[in-house]
Computed example of a mutant assay.
Amino acid sequence: MIVDLGSYVQVGGRPAVRFERLLPAPIERVWAAVTDPEQLPAWFPSQVRYEPRVGGEITFLGDPNLPEPPQVDRVLAWDPPHRFAFGWGGDEIHLELSRTEAGCRLVLLNVLVSADTAARNATGWYGCLGELDKVLQGIPSDGPHSQPLADFWPLHDAHVAAGLPHGAWIPDEVLAARPS
């Protein structure tokens, strides 16, 4: 069963997808997993290098869905261990952490350039957050691009059925994996 698909929201008049996860790990552990460039590839779709300060440069490498050469953007928020935000190809990614009695609450907000990317991006983030959960549980992860391409479609269709805007570009190899 698919649960917690995330939600479609507006942020400052821009479309966005928002996910919230309650994680049974200390905030410091989650902060390391979402900010340490050595840990990010286990769950985030790119290798990341950045200057840990507002306005610092952030570089993305190795994402098969980003054009080469490496993409460069800026850190938008840096408040350890609570907030990390950055630009990403016109989008913004905001990660907010807060302590809970059982561990940590993580909110991932992807502010979008275009509303029609909502279902596609939400599908991707759903998979990424599943990989993050594995990392925090100590389960080996081959990263978010290790999932079978056909697994994309049931989630994407569930996002569309939930009312998320859709119609954005999807990589050819993912399109080819759509069940008939």
Rank of each mutant, 00 (worst) to 15 (best):
G6Y: 00
A122L: 03
P64I: 01
G127R: 13
G138P: 10
P26I: 00
R74D: 09
P171E: 00
L109Y: 04
V30P: 09
G62V: 05
L112W: 12
G62Y: 10
G62M: 02
N121G: 03
P37T: 02
E101K: 12
A85K: 09
V113Q: 14
A118H: 05
P24R: 11
V34Y: 02
P144T: 14
E131V: 03
V160C: 04
I170Q: 07
S7D: 12
V160K: 06
L61S: 15
G62C: 05
L129I: 08
N110C: 11
N121S: 10
E57H: 00
P15D: 01
V48T: 12
F60R: 08
M1N: 08
G143M: 08
L132F: 05
C128W: 03
E38S: 14
G87P: 10
Q137A: 15
E173M: 10
E38K: 15
G163K: 08
L23V: 04
D73R: 07
D157Q: 11
L175P: 12
L61T: 15
L66D: 15
D172P: 12
G62E: 09
S180I: 12
Q147R: 15
A118Q: 03
L149I: 08
E57A: 14
L95K: 06
R21F: 05
P41F: 01
P148I: 01
S180T: 15
D4R: 13
H166M: 06
I27A: 10
L40Q: 06
V11Q: 13
L109W: 07
S7E: 14
S46K: 09
L112N: 08
S98R: 14
A119G: 02
R105S: 12
P26N: 12
V107W: 00
L76T: 05
W125Y: 08
L164K: 09
E57N: 11
D133R: 14
D73L: 05
T100F: 00
P64L: 00
S141W: 08
D142Y: 13
P37D: 04
V3R: 14
V107M: 10
I170H: 03
